[in-house]
Write a protein that binds this DNA or RNA. Structure first.
Lengths: 167, 167
DNA sequence: TTGGAATGTCAACAAAGCTGACGTATTGTT
DNA sequence: AACAATACGTCAGCTTTGTTGACATTCCAA
């Protein structure tokens, strides 16, 4: 109860509460680093992480509908709408009425939107690349494996849905 | 530029932009899973993640001062104060005027505070444990290695400061 | 002993999430 | 043709958690 490896010699020492706590704290601080660089860019533009996420996933699947985006992000339409409106007004996102179904709006990045996307993801990728390079391929495989096992059901479904797009 | 492994055979294939993007998205969705369980507990109590973080780190180093906590969490004292006041009013945290320096407040969890701490960290640890067990010890080592390499300087310093406490 | 630095509190504001209610255009069904 | 369902947008109002600014208290050093 106190200790996940109470009677297993040392094969399961990586499952002790102390080890788990370290993992929890590492996850907390690493997520800070993960968002720090884009955050710095965004704050000059009066945007926040919500805008970054919208831009990321519109770039990821151009032409996606509002509803698609909603189900990936897992927020309410009112919340997303506030963000999307700002991005459209500022000329970073283009919203096209659907041809097959005119109720739908298909979302695309404009040139300016793509430029900002590149700045943001370059910053985030640079940090990720440095961490990957530093840790090496085996560590990266482990990293991905643990992350995927840590997702809750909803997040895992959203993550899986993305994979069906490009790879 | 386009591809981190453009001229390295396949030794650096794990550094391609596509791989990095997958890592970024995995991080995003995994963090959801990471916070999902405590969030569910907290919402019944009208608390949020900020309360969870305060409780976690007070439990981690009982008697810590408000200023210490501030520098670990990286928020403003006004923001932390609101959270702390609620926890004190609800009898989860005890705040003692310092004996050596009466300006300082030393923070402790009460019995009720410890009980909530246990509920929250049990929930979070359970998920982490399942992910760890599923991925195995080598993957976990890689996971930790990448996370630590991903922290920005400030976060890394805070994380390192914690290690000096117990382990 | 007095003025500045440090610690913590109160007030007011902003970003970004939420719910609920409602309007409009379009599509699908009966 | 009528009606229900879907997709999207919007208004109003609330919560959490971050921010700045102003201020009281306490300590320390000149």
């Amino acid at each position: 109860m106190e200790n996940g490896a109470r009677d297993n010699g040392n094969a399961l020492l990586f499952l002790t509460d102390a080890q788990l706590r370290k993992g929890i704290e590492a996850m907390f601080f690493a997520y800070r680093g993960f968002t720090a660089d884009p955050d710095r860019i965004l704050e000059d533009l009066a945007y926040g992480r919500a805008h970054h996420r919208a831009i990321h996933f519109i770039n990821r699947s151009p032409g996606t509908t509002v509803n698609n985006l909603l189900s990936i992000l897992g927020v309410t339409k009112q919340s997303l709408n506030r963000v999307l409106r700002a991005l459209v007004e500022d000329g970073l996102v283009r919203s096209e009425v659907g041809t097959r179904d005119k109720r739908e709006r298909h979302l695309f990045l404009t040139g300016a939107g793509e430029e900002l996307e590149r700045r943001l993801s370059d910053a985030q990728r640079d940090r990720m690349r440095a961490a990957y390079r530093n840790a090496g391929p085996e560590a990266v495989a482990g990293f991905r494996q643990v992350l995927e096992a840590m997702m809750d059901e909803e997040s895992a479904a959203r993550y899986a849905a993305l994979k069906e797009l490009k790879g």
